[in-house]
Computed example of a mutant assay.
Amino acid sequence: MTVYRVKDDQTEAIIRLQGWTPTNLCVTSSGDLLVTMFSDDITQSKVVRYSGSTVKQTIQFNDDGQPLYSGNAYPKYIVEIRNLDICLADYEAGAVVVVNQAGKLRFRYTGQSSSTKNKPFKPWGITTDSQSRILTSDYKHHCIHILDVEGHFLQYINNCDLNYPAGVCVDNDDSLFVCEILRGDMKRIVYLK
C-alpha cells in the first residue's frame, strides 16, 4: 500500500507500506503526518508519525504492552489538538483514545452511561476546535459528544436531527460540519454561543 502526495497536479509516492494498510491521516501542527493503519491479517492497528517519508514514531501499545487500538479494518479517524495530544476515534472499540505527543495513553472515553444504555458508543469522525475541545460523532446514537482536553464529557449536540453522523470538522469560526453517511447530507452547526 502507498500514501501519495499530490501537489500542482504532480503525484508523488511518499510512504510505501508492506504488511499494513493505511486508513486515515492528519497533518500535525509541525507538518508531520499521522497515519492510522491496520495489519494485513486485520489483527493489529497502529498510528505512525512520518516526517516526509521517514518514520519518526509508532504508537501501538500502552505501557503494559497491551494494544491501544482495536485490531480490525474499521477506519480510525485521527486528529491532533493544540496541546499536541493525538485523538483517535476507534469505532469497533467504542472509544476515543487519546495519547500525548510521546504516545503515552492519557485517557479513553467510552461514552456516557446514560446514552449508551441501549446501544454501545460508536465514535466515527473526530475533530477539535479552537479551545481544544474534542468533538466526535456517535454513529449509533445520532449525536455529537463534546469533551474537554482532559476527556471530561461537556455536552451532546443532538437537537439537529442528525442521522448516522460520520465525518466531522470544525472551521476557523468554530462552526461544526457534519456528514450524514446514509442521507448523504452535510450540516453546518453553530454549537457555541
Rank of each mutant, 00 (worst) to 15 (best):
N62T: 09
S53A: 14
V47R: 05
P67C: 07
T54M: 10
T54H: 06
G65Y: 03
F38W: 12
S53K: 06
S45D: 04
Q66F: 09
F38I: 01
P67E: 08
D40E: 11
T43W: 07
K76Y: 09
G52N: 10
G52I: 09
S39G: 05
I59H: 10
K76F: 11
I59D: 06
D41C: 07
S51A: 10
Y77C: 00
D41Q: 07
I78G: 01
V55A: 13
Q66Y: 09
N72F: 00
G65V: 09
V48P: 03
D41M: 09
D41N: 14
Y69A: 07
S45K: 02
V47W: 02
V48Q: 09
S45T: 05
T54W: 04
Y74V: 09
K56L: 09
L68G: 03
T54E: 15
I42D: 03
P75D: 00
Q44I: 00
Y77N: 14
D63E: 14
N72R: 08
L68D: 05
N62L: 06
V79G: 04
Q66K: 14
N62Q: 08
G52V: 13
N62E: 08
N72P: 08
P67Y: 08
T58I: 15
Q44H: 14
D40N: 12
Y69W: 13
V48C: 14
Y77L: 08
S51R: 15
D63Q: 11
G71V: 05
P75F: 00
Y74E: 14
Q66I: 01
D41W: 01
Y77A: 01
Q57F: 00
D40V: 11
F61W: 12
